[in-house]
Design a protein around this nucleic acid. Sequence first.
DNA 1: GCTTGTGAATCTCTTCACAGCG
DNA 2: CGCTGTGAAGAGATTCACAAGC
Lengths: 225, 225
Amino acid sequence: MNPGNGAPEGSLVPVRTVARLSQYRRVLDRLLDEGHRQVFSHQIAALAGGSAAQVRRDLMLVGCRGRPSKGYDAYGLKGCIEELLQAPGGQRVALVGLGNLGRAILPFFARYRPALRIVAVFDNDPRKIGEKLVEGCSPCQGMEELEQTVRQSGITIGVLTVPPGAAQGAADELIAAGVRGLVNFAPVVLEVPEGVFVEDIDLTTALEKAAYFAHHAGKPAEGGA
Amino acid sequence: MNPGNGAPEGSLVPVRTVARLSQYRRVLDRLLDEGHRQVFSHQIAALAGGSAAQVRRDLMLVGCRGRPSKGYDAYGLKGCIEELLQAPGGQRVALVGLGNLGRAILPFFARYRPALRIVAVFDNDPRKIGEKLVEGCSPCQGMEELEQTVRQSGITIGVLTVPPGAAQGAADELIAAGVRGLVNFAPVVLEVPEGVFVEDIDLTTALEKAAYFAHHAGKPAEGGA
DNA sequence: GCTTGTGAATCTCTTCACAGCG
DNA sequence: CGCTGTGAAGAGATTCACAAGC
């Protein structure tokens, strides 16, 4: 559980802050597109939906510095955030479970920046094996090839789009092969050793939250993930 | 923004608690399946990934009561949670954006409990209009039919699986037609009037969180949504 | 013994507010 | 002036710890 937070002990930057930084970077891309060379905390806050003080504190926490009255240098700030968010040589991602959701997510991530690349897909359905999927990603492989492929490709991140009953097993295999971060779409709480991070995306719970607050619409505001 | 929380002002139950209750219910279904008639807070905690004290406080907050040493009556507890989570006559849901993600999510929610039913789907691509999708849901309609359909069907929840640039417009239309809760998959911060709840599901940010903590794997633990 | 219910303490995150600089 | 950087205050959420009940 730990809905939305989860405390990486001993780690540098809190989970919430990392999530916000990811959004700040997206906002920065947009501001750069629009020709801004300097940005202010209140601009980022407006576009990312937070408060200016929050933005400043987040940036301070990760050592991005601005200058009074001149704001932050847009390029410098983007670089500063990316330096924190991205591993030097990029990171490789494996997706497990080529169902509807897996297929939908694949192109979504595939056309994504080079720092994170889905390079392998696994499924246990023989009919799916060998299927060519997206540019830069090996054709679908069987689960028995998972460990070796993940290890050899240096994959460190796994996306789980398998049925609930298969999620823990798939997670175990990925972790055994060296994966340290998981995005889990299965509505199951995964047991993972310390040092492995799990980001749960629970569509059912998300819908139920929206349903609850839609129903009890007194005056709720925003939620998020 | 507000990554993972978001404060419904004046509302009864905090967002985090609603999210956890949704998971407790799922855990209860499982425990009932296994034949349990009474459950303890520590059982729920173990399966939902929290602490027993957290479970008890959540249940206390919504008025579900157990009995010392006997735990909670499983059926009673499930009923108690559902009474809070579910609106009496059920709630109807509209999905906007029939791309890869929308198509994947549709069956995922469609075979879901009767309390929440996707009854309408909208897209602005003429080729998709009229397409029959899932049992109990009207064929795909054009955006120009959105307002009337949403209003007439009493739809109160919207799922946005449209491209980023179309999200705000779609949200505005849904809200104008009476929707009070949104699940937003577009990587954009929606501007909504007070009283409308937005649950953001940001796949990119989720992946980047996993990437960050996989990379800086000192000893992080769990995250969640 | 075992459990629940809950005040109090603790911890974490967010906002306030202002000094200091351009 | 406006904006950053940041200590201090505030608000929430979580855990502790224990009285009371079975």
